[in-house]
């Protein structure tokens, strides 16, 4: 599935639409950036509540294909600007990290 397929999911809001439409190869749910940096797999959708600019830097370094902010946390402008500069898709949902992970996991395994 592509990043643009995530954008069409029910209850998912695209916060930063100017992105490179990469394949979503996996999901990674974490709220500790040091853990994301060390373990997030290339091409993952990062599922997190850490809504700030550093999350974008770390996601890009880790090679993530997109970032999903959970619990409809407010997203500051500097985070949106950072994502635009990296051409990284930034999404938001009212789901929590578990619910979002289940949804993404179902979609990824259905396509295998």
């Amino acid at each position: 599935m592509k990043a643009s397929d995530v954008a069409t999911l029910d209850g998912v809001e695209t916060v930063q639409p100017d992105y490179e439409n990469r394949d979503i190869l996996a999901g990674y749910a974490s709220d500790l950036l040091s853990d994301v940096m060390a373990h997030a797999p290339e091409g993952c959708l990062l599922i997190t509540i850490q809504a700030h600019g550093n999350t974008v830097s770390v996601a890009s370094l880790a090679g993530a294909a997109g970032v999903m902010i959970c619990n409809r946390r407010p997203i500051p402008d500097d985070m949106i600007a950072a994502a635009r500069a990296e051409r990284l898709p930034l999404f938001r949902t009212a789901r929590n990290q578990f619910e979002m992970s289940c949804l993404l996991g179902g979609l990824l395994s259905a396509r295998e």
Partner: peptide
Amino acid sequence: LPPVPLDAERF
């Protein structure tokens, strides 16, 4: 500190 090299462009 973890041995993550500085990416000066980004940080």
